[in-house]
Amino acid sequence: MSLGHALLGLLERGPGHGYDLKKAYDDRFGQDRPLHYGQVYTTLSRLLRNGLVQEAGVEAGAGPERKRYAITDAGVTDVETWLATPEKPEPYLQNTLYTKVVLALLSGRAAAGVLDSQRAAHLDAMRVLTRRKTDGDLADQLICDYALFHLEADLRWLELTADRLDQLAERIGR
């Protein structure tokens, strides 16, 4: 995901300091990995250079930086184009989980065990997310749901695979 586009999107609501932007970003998207200030300033200066944002005055205050930034028309167009461009669906054809299962089968180990422990781990993760979602606000719910649906997809794959293990073993062992 592009951090530049995210910052531009946040600036669309109105001008703000770099610190405001970092806080807003962390609240919404950065629960797991908070941004570094450095990342914010590097990105902002790149946007400034490309004419997508402009400085909107300096404020006296307690913060380490008092520059306020505002989005330009070019910046708005850029955000619109970005939003309108569909993300490429990622098929994850070769992820670790699949590799583990196939390897377990090839090496004669119990693939069911691999699946089961993975399943438990997934459900644990889902339980945590569910609880967080129950206590959180709308943004929390949205982000948790995103993760939940992905985990659910993994779990369904695990269940299906568990049901097909015999079939799979036969084919791979050939």
């Binding site: 997934h122 459900l123 889902m126 339980r127 997310l129 569910t130 985990l151 659910e152």
Partner: peptide, 16 residues
Amino acid sequence: HEPRVAAYADREVVVR
């Protein structure tokens, strides 16, 4: 049979 619903529970039991 929905994992998302099961995730509301404290633990789960699988019947197969």
